[in-house]
Amino acid sequence: MIVADLYPETIKIETEADIVAARQVGRNMSRQLGFDTIMQSRMATSISELARNIFLYAGKGTITISPVEREGAIGLQVTAVDHGPGIPDIRKALEDGFTTSGALGAGLPGVRRMMDEFDIQSTLGEGTRVMIVKWHS
């Protein structure tokens, strides 16, 4: 069905223009999957946050956006990968209020709440990988 017509896309993140491009891809794919306008915007915002973290803290990395299908449900999966400094304390980065202190992990608690699935792996000195999924309800 629809999912079959959509292919995963990987966007290199190095500049702010790349953040915009990633948002755009995410929004378009969300629309094509039939997400409502709010979900489209939440998807774009989430991608924006992940891309911005790459841009601000790692310098460069990639965002891969792919349609997923599981047990008949369709959704959109976003994977953000960088080889930056890594997040020293993931629990803290996911705490509300931590972001306002201006440290790493900006916007992550917000992204986690907007998405259905959220996974983060980070190794100091090696980089960070964040994976999110939103299912079509």
């Binding site: 306008t37 709010i38 915007s41 939440r42 774009a44 915002t45 509300d96 209020g97 916007g107 608690p109 917000g110 709440r113 907007m114």
Partner: peptide, 16 residues
């Protein structure tokens, strides 16, 4: 909508 999503994030954070 895009602007309000940030307010929405704050709203959800307050609930938590």
């Amino acid at each position: 909508t895009e602007v309000m999503i940030e307010y929405g994030n704050e709203h959800r954070a307050v609930t938590t």
